[in-house]
Amino acid sequence: MSSSKETFGRTVGFVFVVCLVCALLVSFSAVQLKPLQTANKLLDKQTKILEASNLLDFAGDDIVATYDRFVEAKMIDLDTGEYVKDASQQEIDMFDERRNARDAEKSSKPENDLAGINRRSNTAVIYLVRNGGGEVETVVLPIVGSGLWDLMYGFVGLEADLNTVKSVIYSDHKETPGLGAEVLNPAWKALWPGKKIYNEAGDVKVQLVKGGAKENDIHGVDALSGATLTSNGVTRTLQFWFGEEGYGPFIAKNRGGLK
Protein backbone atom coordinates (compact mmCIF):
# COMPACT_ATOMS: atom_id res chain seq x y z
CA MET A 1 0.00 0.00 0.00
CA SER A 2 2.77 2.39 0.97
CA SER A 3 4.76 1.52 -2.15
CA SER A 4 1.70 2.22 -4.31
CA LYS A 5 1.18 5.63 -2.71
CA GLU A 6 4.84 6.44 -3.14
CA THR A 7 4.67 5.57 -6.85
CA PHE A 8 1.55 7.70 -7.30
CA GLY A 9 3.19 10.61 -5.48
CA ARG A 10 6.28 10.38 -7.63
CA THR A 11 4.13 10.33 -10.77
CA VAL A 12 2.24 13.42 -9.69
CA GLY A 13 5.48 15.14 -8.79
CA PHE A 14 7.03 14.27 -12.13
CA VAL A 15 3.99 15.59 -14.00
CA PHE A 16 4.07 18.78 -11.94
CA VAL A 17 7.74 19.37 -12.68
CA VAL A 18 7.24 18.76 -16.41
CA CYS A 19 4.27 21.16 -16.50
CA LEU A 20 6.25 23.77 -14.58
CA VAL A 21 9.24 23.51 -16.92
CA CYS A 22 6.99 23.71 -20.00
CA ALA A 23 5.18 26.74 -18.59
CA LEU A 24 8.48 28.47 -17.90
CA LEU A 25 9.72 27.70 -21.43
CA VAL A 26 6.53 29.03 -22.99
CA SER A 27 6.65 32.18 -20.86
CA PHE A 28 10.32 32.72 -21.65
CA SER A 29 9.71 32.24 -25.38
CA ALA A 30 6.75 34.65 -25.33
CA VAL A 31 8.81 37.34 -23.61
CA GLN A 32 11.81 36.83 -25.90
CA LEU A 33 9.72 36.78 -29.09
CA LYS A 34 7.48 39.74 -28.24
CA PRO A 35 9.86 42.41 -29.61
CA LEU A 36 10.19 40.43 -32.85
CA GLN A 37 6.41 40.00 -33.12
CA THR A 38 5.89 43.72 -32.51
CA ALA A 39 8.48 44.62 -35.14
CA ASN A 40 6.90 42.25 -37.68
CA LYS A 41 3.44 43.68 -37.00
CA LEU A 42 4.74 47.22 -37.52
CA LEU A 43 6.55 46.19 -40.72
CA ASP A 44 3.36 44.60 -42.08
CA LYS A 45 1.43 47.81 -41.39
CA GLN A 46 4.11 49.92 -43.06
CA THR A 47 4.03 47.62 -46.08
CA LYS A 48 0.25 48.00 -46.45
CA ILE A 49 0.49 51.79 -46.10
CA LEU A 50 3.11 51.94 -48.87
CA GLU A 51 0.91 49.71 -51.02
CA ALA A 52 -2.09 51.98 -50.40
CA SER A 53 -0.04 54.99 -51.50
CA ASN A 54 1.42 53.24 -54.58
CA LEU A 55 4.95 53.29 -53.19
CA LEU A 56 5.45 49.59 -52.58
CA ASP A 57 7.13 48.85 -55.92
CA PHE A 58 9.35 51.90 -55.46
CA ALA A 59 10.36 50.71 -51.99
CA GLY A 60 11.41 47.21 -53.09
CA ASP A 61 13.05 45.52 -50.12
CA ASP A 62 13.68 48.82 -48.34
CA ILE A 63 10.27 49.14 -46.69
CA VAL A 64 11.30 50.86 -43.46
CA ALA A 65 13.56 53.46 -45.08
CA THR A 66 10.94 54.33 -47.70
CA TYR A 67 8.24 54.59 -45.05
CA ASP A 68 10.41 56.82 -42.86
CA ARG A 69 11.27 59.04 -45.82
CA PHE A 70 7.78 59.67 -47.18
CA VAL A 71 5.18 58.83 -44.51
CA GLU A 72 4.16 60.86 -41.48
CA ALA A 73 1.76 59.24 -39.03
CA LYS A 74 -0.51 61.52 -37.03
CA MET A 75 -3.17 60.91 -34.40
CA ILE A 76 -6.50 62.68 -34.77
CA ASP A 77 -9.56 63.17 -32.59
CA LEU A 78 -12.39 61.67 -34.64
CA ASP A 79 -15.10 63.80 -33.04
CA THR A 80 -13.43 67.15 -33.74
CA GLY A 81 -11.24 66.26 -36.72
CA GLU A 82 -8.28 67.95 -35.03
CA TYR A 83 -4.78 66.56 -34.61
CA VAL A 84 -3.90 65.25 -31.14
CA LYS A 85 -0.84 67.40 -30.55
CA ASP A 86 0.45 65.69 -27.39
CA ALA A 87 0.44 62.14 -28.82
CA SER A 88 3.85 60.50 -28.46
CA GLN A 89 5.54 58.61 -31.26
CA GLN A 90 5.24 55.40 -29.28
CA GLU A 91 1.49 55.92 -28.87
CA ILE A 92 1.19 56.45 -32.62
CA ASP A 93 3.35 53.46 -33.58
CA MET A 94 1.58 51.09 -31.16
CA PHE A 95 -1.94 52.43 -31.75
CA ASP A 96 -4.62 49.72 -31.91
CA GLU A 97 -8.15 50.89 -32.71
CA ARG A 98 -9.78 47.68 -31.48
CA ARG A 99 -7.86 47.75 -28.19
CA ASN A 100 -9.03 51.32 -27.61
CA ALA A 101 -12.57 50.32 -28.56
CA ARG A 102 -12.62 47.86 -25.65
CA ASP A 103 -11.79 50.67 -23.21
CA ALA A 104 -14.91 52.66 -22.30
CA GLU A 105 -12.79 55.72 -21.46
CA LYS A 106 -11.14 55.74 -24.88
CA SER A 107 -14.12 54.87 -27.04
CA SER A 108 -17.79 55.50 -27.70
CA LYS A 109 -20.74 53.61 -29.13
CA PRO A 110 -21.70 54.94 -32.60
CA GLU A 111 -25.25 56.21 -33.00
CA ASN A 112 -25.39 54.66 -36.46
CA ASP A 113 -23.08 51.65 -36.40
CA LEU A 114 -23.08 50.87 -40.13
CA ALA A 115 -19.71 49.11 -39.87
CA GLY A 116 -20.90 46.72 -37.16
CA ILE A 117 -17.99 47.45 -34.83
CA ASN A 118 -20.05 48.01 -31.64
CA ARG A 119 -17.64 50.64 -30.29
CA ARG A 120 -15.27 53.08 -31.99
CA SER A 121 -12.03 54.49 -30.63
CA ASN A 122 -12.18 58.23 -29.93
CA THR A 123 -8.92 58.67 -31.81
CA ALA A 124 -7.37 57.30 -34.98
CA VAL A 125 -3.95 57.31 -36.60
CA ILE A 126 -3.79 58.52 -40.19
CA TYR A 127 -0.86 58.58 -42.61
CA LEU A 128 0.23 61.58 -44.67
CA VAL A 129 2.37 60.50 -47.60
CA ARG A 130 4.51 63.27 -49.08
CA ASN A 131 6.40 63.59 -52.35
CA GLY A 132 10.04 64.59 -52.67
CA GLY A 133 9.06 68.25 -52.37
CA GLY A 134 7.29 67.72 -49.06
CA GLU A 135 3.76 68.11 -50.40
CA VAL A 136 1.05 65.68 -49.29
CA GLU A 137 0.13 63.46 -52.25
CA THR A 138 -1.75 60.68 -50.48
CA VAL A 139 -3.65 60.29 -47.24
CA VAL A 140 -4.01 56.70 -46.00
CA LEU A 141 -6.91 56.06 -43.64
CA PRO A 142 -7.38 52.77 -41.73
CA ILE A 143 -10.84 51.18 -41.76
CA VAL A 144 -12.44 48.27 -39.91
CA GLY A 145 -15.89 46.75 -40.27
CA SER A 146 -17.87 43.53 -40.26
CA GLY A 147 -17.68 41.06 -43.12
CA LEU A 148 -19.44 37.73 -43.35
CA TRP A 149 -17.56 35.94 -40.56
CA ASP A 150 -15.63 38.55 -38.60
CA LEU A 151 -14.17 42.04 -38.69
CA MET A 152 -12.21 43.03 -41.79
CA TYR A 153 -9.29 45.47 -41.55
CA GLY A 154 -7.98 47.63 -44.35
CA PHE A 155 -6.63 50.96 -45.61
CA VAL A 156 -8.02 53.50 -48.05
CA GLY A 157 -5.56 55.67 -49.95
CA LEU A 158 -6.97 59.06 -51.01
CA GLU A 159 -5.61 61.78 -53.24
CA ALA A 160 -4.82 65.09 -51.54
CA ASP A 161 -8.36 66.29 -52.37
CA LEU A 162 -9.60 63.80 -49.74
CA ASN A 163 -12.23 62.49 -52.13
CA THR A 164 -10.55 60.66 -55.02
CA VAL A 165 -9.60 57.06 -54.23
CA LYS A 166 -6.12 55.79 -55.00
CA SER A 167 -6.57 52.37 -53.46
CA VAL A 168 -8.54 50.14 -51.14
CA ILE A 169 -6.27 47.58 -49.49
CA TYR A 170 -7.54 44.92 -47.11
CA SER A 171 -4.92 43.50 -44.80
CA ASP A 172 -6.71 41.11 -42.45
CA HIS A 173 -9.94 39.14 -42.82
CA LYS A 174 -11.54 35.72 -42.39
CA GLU A 175 -13.73 35.75 -45.49
CA THR A 176 -14.42 32.70 -47.64
CA PRO A 177 -11.69 31.87 -50.21
CA GLY A 178 -12.92 32.49 -53.74
CA LEU A 179 -15.81 34.65 -52.51
CA GLY A 180 -15.37 37.35 -49.86
CA ALA A 181 -11.61 36.80 -49.90
CA GLU A 182 -11.62 38.32 -53.40
CA VAL A 183 -11.01 41.65 -51.66
CA LEU A 184 -7.36 40.61 -52.07
CA ASN A 185 -7.69 39.98 -55.81
CA PRO A 186 -5.54 42.48 -57.78
CA ALA A 187 -8.24 42.68 -60.46
CA TRP A 188 -10.80 43.89 -57.90
CA LYS A 189 -8.35 46.28 -56.26
CA ALA A 190 -7.62 47.75 -59.71
CA LEU A 191 -11.25 48.93 -59.96
CA TRP A 192 -10.85 51.53 -57.22
CA PRO A 193 -8.43 54.22 -58.48
CA GLY A 194 -10.28 57.35 -59.56
CA LYS A 195 -13.55 56.58 -57.74
CA LYS A 196 -15.07 59.31 -55.59
CA ILE A 197 -16.14 58.96 -51.97
CA TYR A 198 -18.44 62.01 -51.88
CA ASN A 199 -20.81 63.67 -54.32
CA GLU A 200 -20.84 67.44 -54.91
CA ALA A 201 -23.13 67.94 -51.92
CA GLY A 202 -20.62 66.21 -49.63
CA ASP A 203 -22.71 63.07 -49.11
CA VAL A 204 -20.97 59.69 -48.89
CA LYS A 205 -21.91 57.83 -52.07
CA VAL A 206 -19.18 55.23 -52.51
CA GLN A 207 -20.60 51.70 -52.74
CA LEU A 208 -20.20 48.21 -54.15
CA VAL A 209 -22.77 47.53 -56.85
CA LYS A 210 -24.34 44.10 -57.27
CA GLY A 211 -24.20 43.04 -60.92
CA GLY A 212 -21.42 45.53 -61.66
CA ALA A 213 -21.08 49.29 -61.63
CA LYS A 214 -21.92 51.24 -64.78
CA GLU A 215 -19.04 52.67 -66.74
CA ASN A 216 -19.86 56.27 -65.83
CA ASP A 217 -20.52 55.54 -62.14
CA ILE A 218 -17.84 57.50 -60.32
CA HIS A 219 -18.95 56.22 -56.92
CA GLY A 220 -19.60 52.55 -57.69
CA VAL A 221 -17.31 49.51 -57.80
CA ASP A 222 -18.27 45.99 -58.83
CA ALA A 223 -19.49 43.90 -55.92
CA LEU A 224 -17.70 40.66 -55.11
CA SER A 225 -19.29 37.87 -57.14
CA GLY A 226 -21.18 35.41 -54.90
CA ALA A 227 -20.29 37.34 -51.75
CA THR A 228 -23.26 39.61 -51.12
CA LEU A 229 -22.79 39.87 -47.35
CA THR A 230 -19.09 40.68 -47.65
CA SER A 231 -19.83 43.27 -50.35
CA ASN A 232 -22.50 44.86 -48.19
CA GLY A 233 -20.04 44.89 -45.30
CA VAL A 234 -17.42 46.72 -47.38
CA THR A 235 -19.99 49.31 -48.49
CA ARG A 236 -21.24 49.90 -44.96
CA THR A 237 -17.69 50.08 -43.60
CA LEU A 238 -16.72 52.76 -46.12
CA GLN A 239 -19.91 54.72 -45.55
CA PHE A 240 -19.36 54.64 -41.79
CA TRP A 241 -15.72 55.66 -41.78
CA PHE A 242 -16.19 58.49 -44.26
CA GLY A 243 -19.28 59.75 -42.47
CA GLU A 244 -19.71 62.03 -39.48
CA GLU A 245 -18.79 59.36 -36.92
CA GLY A 246 -15.63 58.45 -38.80
CA TYR A 247 -13.21 60.64 -40.75
CA GLY A 248 -15.90 63.09 -41.88
CA PRO A 249 -14.94 65.91 -39.46
CA PHE A 250 -11.24 65.58 -40.30
CA ILE A 251 -11.91 65.61 -44.05
CA ALA A 252 -14.24 68.59 -43.76
CA LYS A 253 -11.54 70.59 -41.96
CA ASN A 254 -8.77 69.72 -44.41
CA ARG A 255 -10.31 69.87 -47.87
CA GLY A 256 -8.56 73.19 -48.39
CA GLY A 257 -5.16 71.57 -48.06
CA LEU A 258 -3.23 69.27 -45.75
CA LYS A 259 -0.17 70.19 -43.80
Rank of each mutant, 00 (worst) to 15 (best):
S2D: 10
S4G: 09
S4Y: 09
E6V: 10
T11D: 02
T11C: 12
V15S: 11
V17P: 02
C22M: 11
C22R: 05
L25F: 15
L25I: 13
V26T: 12
A30M: 09
L33T: 15
K34L: 07
Q37K: 15
T38L: 07
L42I: 12
D44R: 14
Q46C: 08
E51T: 14
E51P: 11
A52K: 05
L55R: 15
L55D: 01
L55Q: 08
F58G: 00
A59E: 10
D61W: 01
D62Q: 14
I63H: 04
I63S: 05
V64Y: 05
Y67C: 08
R69H: 15
F70Q: 10
E72F: 06
E72L: 02
K74F: 00
K74A: 09
K74R: 15
M75T: 08
M75A: 11
D77R: 04
G81R: 11
Y83V: 07
K85R: 12
D86G: 05
I92P: 15
D93H: 09
M94I: 01
D96I: 03
E97P: 08
R99Y: 05
R99G: 03
R102W: 04
E105R: 13
E105Q: 14
K109D: 00
K109H: 08
P110D: 00
P110T: 03
L114M: 11
S121P: 13
S121W: 03
I126A: 08
L128E: 10
V129M: 05
G133A: 08
G134T: 07
E135F: 05
V139M: 09
V140G: 07
V140L: 01
L141W: 04
G145N: 06
G147P: 12
L148I: 06
W149T: 06
D150R: 05
D150K: 04
M152C: 13
F155W: 14
V156G: 14
L158W: 09
E159D: 15
A160D: 13
A160M: 04
D161W: 11
D161H: 13
L162W: 11
L162K: 14
L162C: 09
T164L: 07
V168C: 12
I169E: 11
I169M: 04
Y170G: 08
Y170P: 10
S171Q: 09
H173W: 02
E175V: 06
E175R: 09
E175G: 09
T176A: 03
G178E: 00
P186C: 01
A187I: 13
A187G: 06
L191Q: 15
L191I: 06
P193T: 06
P193M: 00
G194E: 00
G194N: 03
K195T: 06
K196W: 12
N199L: 02
E200I: 11
E200Q: 15
A201I: 10
G202Q: 07
G202D: 03
K205Y: 04
K205E: 11
V206P: 06
V209M: 02
G212T: 09
K214L: 03
K214Y: 03
D217W: 06
D217S: 11
D222A: 03
L224C: 00
L224K: 04
G226N: 00
L229F: 10
L238T: 05
E245R: 07
Y247G: 10
F250K: 09
F250E: 01
F250Q: 03
F250D: 00
A252S: 14
A252W: 04
N254Y: 02
N254L: 01
